[in-house]
Amino acid sequence: MIQLIAFYLFATIVIASAAMVIFARNPVHSVMWLILAFFNAAGLMLLAGAEFIAMLLVIVYVGAVAVLFLFVVMMLDIDFAELRAGFVRYLPLGALVAIILAAELVFAVGAWSAGGVDLAARAAPVVTDKSNIQQIGELLYTKYIFLFEAAGIVLLVAMIGAIVLTHRQRGGVRTQNISAQNRRRPEDATRLVDPGVGQGMEL
């Protein structure tokens, strides 16, 4: 009973906040609605029994990806009224994309219920007493090694790409060389002299 209420609560909020992402005038508000949507999607995952995925959704999407989104929309100094003005102009194109997506959805649901293609004999998940992190672990690092390593390479490419795109070497800055500082000894920097009276000193 509570699960049912929670499901409809989360589902309603996901859809409503997803709609608000599009309708909010201020892009920062949009990102906030997006975060609410992620959060409730995590709740839905939890109800489906995927607690690990739910936590990852919060850690990765809410905790990391949305922070980047927020950085981007907060900093980009775009005239948003001007962006909105394009709404009518792009309406036909947008409508076309929407219709195609809707058709694909209907098609997919139809294909699913028709049950024509047997995708490697979908089996219901075996219920064990292990937590689902462990179950994922036992599969991901044995059966799906190649996908896992490919994910690693994708991350590597993403990192290099991000650095190539955003990193600019700045000229004329003096950085601290910490190892050089730590290596420096008093003998390198100071000199003890004992000048006689009336004598000058060379520096």
């Binding site: 690990f52 936590m55 919060v58 850690i59 809410v62 905790g63 990391a64």
Partner: peptide, 8 residues
């Protein structure tokens, strides 16, 4: 993980 998620 919950603590990591919340603190993020």
């Amino acid at each position: 993980l919950y603590i990591l998620a919340i603190s993020s």
